[in-house]
Design a protein around this nucleic acid. Structure first.
Lengths: 259, 259
DNA sequence: CTATCATTAT
DNA sequence: ATAATGATAG
């Protein structure tokens, strides 16, 4: 059986909020190392990968590998019933028909409990290759969100161009063109405002702003975001969560005429 | 060429916000004395006149007279990308296809740059006659906004009646009638709360509240507003900006049955 | 002055 | 349902 308690129902709430527009139904794969999720969006352009490590839960118990096939719309409805500060316990049998979610206020004055029916979902196994990226940018997540929103007013696509000096986001559209340049800068006192670039070679790639704006729904999960790029390889947009957990989005670059 | 830097992108942001619902496309006329704009609203009932004096910019350089025909919707999108505290530099060539806007944080860690395509706009020249108004009321801009909003809940029109004692805003509507009387009062310590009336003869005129509410979008630009009235002449609603700059709205009075 | 929230308008 | 706006709190 599975039994896992999160001290912040909020984390799962925000994760699901951030991915539910990309993926309708997916498996939450539970094993002794934690709860993981991988899924492609409907158009097979983007990929979501989440890990909530067993370390993020206390207690965490999972005797056997279980795949919980869940409709994210249903899960969203249920998670709306959770208070931000509620503790969340996820429970399932070894061969479950339902997943059981229990929300309790810290003092246990209010306990709410929901069962969500599970579904069988074809497990298209998604091998995500480990990549050595040519460049990784770490920047404030709100800054990335701001840039994606601003540029999406002008165009469908953005080019991300990374050099040692900094990173430039640029686009062209019908009403004109726009660009934002961020200088690499370390703010020791405010690490969340640091823009850091780790790079082996300069890289410039173009991506759909619609997807990037969508990924930015995860902004509230982390103060910083990492963008990892290599030529002809999907962009990795990563939000690190506490306790070795993460939410990652992959997005294939636009090539040639598509730009 | 034109090159003009505003230390507060905010000023242009608020000006455009205040007029974009009245005017879609208009020329920004640039010459060595500054950047000016005159335009009528679509229904030709109201007129907007803005001056950003060269003194409001540092530096300011404009070698030749240039008319920048800009779609205010596009400009709004771009200005949304400016931070409140950003410095804004406006640049254009002598015979430009685009206007270039550069936003930079004070420390230049973030530089964003936008080109907006220009349009040819028929320059219907608007001779705005200098008028000696029968009465000019200076009052807190938030007070004027409040009155226009409150009375617009009751009626389409408001009468503004000015005497030496003070000014009365009154309206009649289906559900009842309303009026607000402001006594002339000088608060030496709080000049922004002063209500001052300069008058050669009493005057009473009626105006469309819809337009006045619209003009009040400029409230954030100045702590005070001046209302200038004369019989059978458009009302002048004026917001003074820093450095000999201003935003003015003119609105023809309603007459006879129209009230 | 920014961020969040709450309300409203589309 | 979502987006834009305005109010409020930090």
């Amino acid at each position: 059986m599975l039994e896992a308690r999160l001290e912040q129902a909020n984390v799962l709430k925000k994760v699901v909020e951030a991915i539910k527009d990309l993926v309708q139904d997916c498996n939450f794969d539970c094993n002794d190392s934690g709860i993981a999720l991988q899924a492609m969006d409907n158009s097979h352009v983007a990929l979501v990968s989440m890990l909530l490590s067993s370390a993020a839960f206390a207690p965490y118990r999972c005797d056997r590998n279980i795949a919980l096939g869940i409709n994210l719309g249903s899960l969203t409805k249920v998670l709306k019933a959770a208070g931000t500060e509620d503790w969340l316990t996820i429970k399932a049998e070894d061969a479950p028909d339902v997943v059981n979610l229990v929300f309790e206020t810290k003092d246990a004055d209010r306990i709410s409990e929901y069962d969500i029916k599970l579904m069988d979902i074809d497990q298209e196994h998604l091998g995500i290759p480990e990549t050595d990226y040519a460049a990784t940018i770490t920047m404030p997540s709100v800054e990335f969100q701001r840039i994606c929103r601003d540029l999406s007013a002008l165009s469908e696509s953005v080019s991300i161009e990374c050099s040692k000096e900094g990173v430039k986001f640029a686009c062209q559209g019908d009403i004109g063109s726009g660009s934002v340049f961020l200088k690499q800068i370390e703010k020791v006192d405010k690490p969340n405002e640091t823009v850091k670039i780790e790079m082996t070679e300069p890289v410039s790639l173009t991506f759909s702003l619609k997807y990037l704006v969508n990924f930015c729904k995860a902004t509230g999960l982390s103060g910083t975001v990492q963008l990892s790029l290599s030529s002809e390889v999907p962009l990795l947009v990563q939000y690190d969560l506490q306790d070795q957990s993460y939410l990652r989005f992959y997005l294939a670059p636009k090539i040639g005429d598509e730009e």
